[in-house]
Design a protein around this nucleic acid. Structure first.
Length: 426
RNA sequence: CGGAGUGUGGUGUAACGGCUAACAUGUCUGGUUUGGGACCAGAUGACUCCGGGUUCGAAUCCCGGCACUCCGACCA
């Protein structure tokens, strides 16, 4: 893509109403635009990152479930059925008719914060026999939660992206087998996102969801809202909320020997057992003809929050730094040609055309800006590899390549550049 | 939801209760320039968040809202 057609611009000044690193840098670089507290538009560059993250999540979820897309709106009835209409305090709802809105309908609808209440009735329509189980549905979708306090840019929003997976099982054993199988799948997601080294399966309290422990996936990061006790040797962590003598005994661990670190929850999994199937009276017919409640699990990952976490973890004083797997582009090609019709300009155009047709995602800075401005923008946007084409580089034998996270640069011939990236495409 | 702070051109800031609300940046014109956010000239752009009040006079003081940020509670 040509940078002249991005339609967004970078800015030198940080917005005065943002303090968190992710909000400041993503705004300065033109990735996001704040609509209100905790509600952000994803601009072209930001959307590309979000899509990369969601594609990685989707790739792995396809191995354990089937994708659906449920509604953002739901009738209040659905929440009355699960007795959650008045207990879930983050519920956002549309207002009834009033003079201002001039709506005809007197109904109020829920903007869904999660979908157990929706997926369970759907499952009950199709999964009525033990032969239909197990089954798992997932979706990647925008969620709404009326957080009392949205904060930290993308880390805690009122409108945010979420992948939610729901599984249905014949019995608890099957649920727990599946539940355990999800853990390595999640870890593969974080590995591919570039967060593998600092993300840990974390034992957490199940909250109102389950009397058992649930598990979170916590990524170590300074701004994280959670404190975890980390047992590096056994590659597992414990959320501070479960750290007490009783649990130490129950789990057979010694919390006092563990490292305490701040972390951000980038995923969670809950064994729901029959909490929702019972309240909704959803039964299947087992082999012996008896009616039983299916066992359920739910499993979440927040792509927009992860975008914020990646920003927080990797950005430096010059700007954003994207892991290759989620970078909006693989290469930032910068032309420093003085004249539009010069040989250097033509070479840059040629490189852009050839790499693009080879399937390489290139952001081409074809703007009429000074070299300094282009370099500063490139650092701010944070694409892992920068390729400069200039009179100077041509004279030196080709193009100058520089990694975003390294100081030095090197000259490689144009042929060598093509060879490298063609190989990467395969 | 409790507490604190802040609201001024698109963005970032300034302005003792007192002159036509200033500066930088951005944007637009023209010129010049091209390896680390260049330079020169001109132009554009603000009912100072909203509503009341005090005062001869309010961006500035007071009251009430709203918004944003931070701390805490909350986070199924």
């Amino acid at each position: 893509m040509r940078q002249s057609q991005l339609y967004t611009k970078t800015r030198k000044e940080a917005p005065a109403d943002e303090v968190s690193k992710n909000a400041i840098l993503l705004t300065r670089a033109g990735f996001i635009h704040k609509e209100m507290a905790g509600v952000y538009t994803f601009l072209p560059l930001g959307l590309r990152v979000l899509k990369k993250i969601e594609d990685i999540v989707r790739h792995h979820m396809d191995t354990v479930g089937t994708e659906v897309l449920m509604t953002s709106l739901s009738p209040e009835e659905k929440w009355k059925n699960t007795k959650r209409l008045d207990t879930v305090d983050v519920l956002m709802r549309t207002g009834p008719a009033n003079e201002v809105s001039k709506q005809k309908s007197s109904n109020s609808y829920i903007l869904n914060p999660t979908h157990e209440d929706m997926i369970t009735p759907i499952a009950s329509e199709y999964l009525q026999s033990y032969k239909d189980l197990p089954a798992a549905f997932y979706q990647i979708q925008t969620k709404f939660r009326n957080e009392a306090r949205a904060k930290s840019g993308l880390l805690r929003g009122r409108e945010f992206r979420m992948k939610d997976l729901y599984s249905f099982h014949r019995d608890q054993d099957d649920l727990m087998r599946y539940y355990e199988s999800i853990k390595p799948v999640y870890m593969n997601v974080y590995r591919d996102l570039g967060l593998g080294n600092d993300t840990f399966i974390t034992v957490a309290s199940g909250g109102d969801f389950t009397p058992n422990f649930s598990h979170e996936f916590q990524t170590i990061v300074d701004v994280g809202e959670d404190m975890i006790y980390l047992d590096r040797k056994n590659n597992i962590a414990y959320n501070k909320e479960v750290v007490n003598d009783e649990n130490a005994k129950k789990l057979g661990v010694d919390f006092s020997t563990m490292e305490q670190v701040s972390a951000c929850e980038v995923g969670n999994i809950f064994p729901l057992d029959t909490k929702y199937t019972e309240v909704l009276n959803y039964t299947y017919t087992d082999q012996d003809g008896s009616k039983k409640f299916p066992f359920m699990g739910c499993y979440g990952i927040g792509p927009s929050r992860i975008m914020g976490v990646i920003t927080e973890k990797f950005a430096d004083e010059k700007g954003l730094v994207w892991p290759a797997s989620v970078s909006p582009f693989s290469l930032h090609l910068i032309s420093l040609a003085k004249e539009k019709e010069s040989d250097t300009a033509k070479k840059a155009e040629d490189i852009y055309a050839k790499l693009t047709s080879a399937g390489v995602e290139v952001l081409f800075d074809d703007r009429n800006e000074s070299a300094g401005a282009k370099f500063a923008d490139s650092d701010l946007i944070g694409i892992p590899m920068r390729v400069v084409v200039s009179d100077k580089s041509i004279l030196a034998g080709g193009v100058e390549i520089k990694e975003r996270t390294k100081d030095g640069s090197e000259i490689v011939s144009i042929e060598e550049l093509f060879a490298t990236y063609k190989k990467n495409c395969e």
